[in-house]
Design a protein around this nucleic acid. Structure first.
Lengths: 158, 158
DNA sequence: AGCAATCCTTACTAAATAAGTCGGGATTAA
DNA sequence: TTAATCCCGACTTATTTAGTAAGGATTGCT
């Protein structure tokens, strides 16, 4: 049940854009350096977010990407569902489910999958990128810049 | 984020054992027929549950499997974590995490992964196999046996 | 105008994981 | 003794993941 790197790295990218919200377009190269992700892979991830209207792009030199609205108006759920698709533990609880389990009100496991899905969604929808920023600033104070950079290098991404 | 068939089918198997709790050992063949799962695959799944002490086996003719304790004492979380491993959205929040992110109290995403994990665990630990039985009996009444069997055949598993 | 920095798009690939199957051995009730 | 069952390890096939690669399109800057 581990999220794919798509969701995890994509969220880091979105968080990075949130960090620089209001400063004009942020090029992938700079996100790449800060977040330690390859540019080509970032391109793939951010293309998804762009298609879903979560980020906007500015082409050409001095171009880059920006969040399409204020970090407080974008939830982690928006980002993760965009990148990962619906976060359901089984297909039968998806909305577009035409094929199977339609009239399966008779289905005990389905009830369970729905509970799990609702619970996940309620968590990720209740946290906005702004909340992550706030968390970050609170945490940041406890470490020196050097410590943080050192951590970034020695430890992996999570 | 869809659970693998391991978790989903394994839970069905466990639920089937719960349905027949107290009736002596249940052979895989009969679970296979009722739940529409192959015997060899079921063997693989139930072996995991057995290693984790959730079911016990009786070898030889007239043998089979039984839940190792009352359905009310086995949570869906016990079953799913046994089959799927810990249900975390990222590796860094696992207990056995020696390698990475150890002193990453400085890590905004980690806080989020923990919230998600806690929320999933709290749902699946709050539902026991007995609860599923109760649900099943309540739902079952609304459908004829024929309707249910027909559903099992026309629709897939979920 | 020309260049360099960007975004944008499509295709490709290697590795890992998922989802089983298969064959045969061990145990035991009837 | 036999048939039903659990038990175990190896094997296979398809899918997904996690990227890389190559090149085209756009635009600010000089």
């Amino acid at each position: 049940m581990i999220l794919s790197t798509k969701g995890r790295y994509g969220l880091r990218a979105a968080f990075d854009l949130a960090l620089h919200y209001g400063e004009g377009p942020v090029p992938l190269k700079s996100i790449s350096e800060r977040q330690n992700l390859s540019v080509p892979y970032l391109e793939q991830l951010i293309a998804i977010l762009r298609k879903d209207g979560l980020v906007t792009s500015v082409r050409g030199a001095q171009g880059g990407y920006m969040l399409s609205r204020h970090p407080s108006k974008i939830s982690v759920g928006n980002i993760l569902r965009s990148l990962e698709g619906p976060l359901a533990p089984a297909e039968c609880v998806l909305d577009d489910n035409d094929k199977e389990c339609i009239k399966a009100d008779y289905c005990v496991t389905r009830v369970l999958w729905e509970k799990i899905m609702d619970s996940i969604n309620s968590v990720i929808d209740s946290v906005s990128l702004q909340d992550m920023l706030d968390d970050y600033e609170r945490i940041e104070k406890d470490y020196t810049k050097e410590e943080r950079e050192n951590f970034d290098k020695t430890k992996g991404l999570c």
